[in-house]
Amino acid sequence: MNIRSKFLIVPLGLLLATLVPAGPEPNHNTACAQDKKIILERADRLQGGEERSPAGRIEQVRTVSGNVVFRQENLLLRCDRATEFLESGTVKLRGDIFITDGKIEVYCDNALYFPDRKIAELEKNVRSRTLEDDLRTKSKRAKIDNVNDRVWIFDDAVAWQDDRQLSGDSIMVQLAEIDGKKKAKHIVTSGKAFFAARDTADTSKELYNQLSGRKMTIDLKDGSGVEGIRVESQARSLYHTYDGGEPSGVNYSSGNVIEMFFREGKLHRILVSGNVEGKQYPDRLRGASDINLPGFRLRFDERPQF
């Protein structure tokens, strides 16, 4: 049997990796500064005072508000209000937050940056997109760890690109230095991990290959194309098969672990281990909703609009 089915995974780490600067320190002409300073370009008001910090103590603060714009080289940040806690250096952003470097855009309502740990936490209506390939994400929270080159999106995290959808309780992207640039090396989706991709060989454009489990790890070759996928715990796969270019049915597999291996972005081999079950549905069941994997739900209507 000639299996012709394509699973493509998106490099999510490119979304946020360059958007949060590292190591701000107080500076007389910036709301926060670093080796490459973030310049306060404009704000309607500047004021001082005291406020309880995220650490729970009362600190002296410096606050700018009203049409706030920061710029750092090619990085642009807009928000309604920014507060720097002068003792801890923590920076709190509030209201209509927009961050871009000209290639990636991130939006949210609230954000905190902790310079001592070089960690940024985003929350409330977190969404992002890449301008070149229109990769979009949506979640309730996100976290960026500059020290360990990791990016998380939490709480009903979903990512879309073209006709592909990846979702889970959390999605973590491990970045690596590749050819002088930070690129996604691994993507780990935990808790109700589900990947759905439209079957590109299907002319009706209504069939979706599916993969699910408690944990899904995606390895990206050279930070770009998919090299392998490993699904652990309650692992299931459903993909449409072809023989000589003609539809031949639908393959279902389940087990403790499912491993997928790829060549040039195309599914080459599947290995299922531990409590293995499998079946081949006849071609007449292609597109039948009752053979979809548990939890299959297309959510393209939820994609953030910009």
Rank of each mutant, 00 (worst) to 15 (best):
T241D: 04
G228T: 11
R198D: 07
S170R: 02
T217G: 06
H240E: 10
S190G: 08
D169A: 05
I153V: 09
N209P: 08
F194G: 02
L207N: 09
T203E: 15
G245N: 01
T203H: 12
E177I: 11
E177Q: 14
R150F: 00
I229M: 08
A193L: 00
M216K: 03
A201D: 15
N209V: 05
W160C: 03
M216A: 06
G245R: 04
T203V: 14
T200C: 12
A201P: 09
A184V: 06
D162Y: 10
D202G: 05
S233I: 13
G225Q: 15
D155A: 02
G228Y: 03
V188M: 10
K182F: 12
S237L: 12
R236A: 11
V173Y: 13
L175N: 14
Q210S: 06
V173P: 10
D222W: 09
A196G: 09
Y242A: 05
A196F: 04
V173H: 15
S248I: 01
D169G: 11
V231R: 01
L211N: 07
Y239W: 08
D179Q: 11
R214W: 09
S204P: 06
K185I: 10
A193C: 01
S224E: 15
G191F: 00
A157H: 00
V151R: 08
R230T: 13
I229C: 03
W160L: 02
K182M: 11
K185M: 13
R164C: 11
I187T: 15
Y242H: 03
G245T: 05
L207E: 06
L166I: 10
A201W: 13
A157D: 00
T217A: 14
I187S: 09
L211C: 08
L166G: 05
K215M: 10
R150N: 05
A197S: 14
L238N: 03
L211G: 06
E177R: 14
G213Y: 03
G228N: 13
G228I: 02
A159M: 01
F195A: 13
V158C: 05
S233K: 15
S233G: 10
E246M: 07
G223I: 01
R214T: 11
A176G: 12
A176I: 06
G223W: 00
I187W: 07
S233H: 15
H240S: 13
K205I: 10
L211D: 02
Q174D: 15
K182V: 04
H240V: 09
V173W: 14
T217H: 13
E246P: 01
V173R: 12
S204R: 07
A235P: 05
K205T: 13
N209T: 07
L238A: 05
I153C: 01
G213M: 02
G168A: 00
I218G: 03
A196P: 03
K215C: 06
L166T: 09
S204N: 10
D243C: 08
V231G: 05
L238P: 07
K183C: 06
A184E: 13
K221D: 13
K215G: 03
V158S: 01
G180K: 04
Y239A: 08
D162K: 14
L211T: 07
I218C: 11
L211H: 03
K221P: 02
Q210W: 03
G168W: 00
I229P: 04
V173L: 13
K221E: 14
L211E: 07
F194L: 04
A196Q: 10
A235D: 05
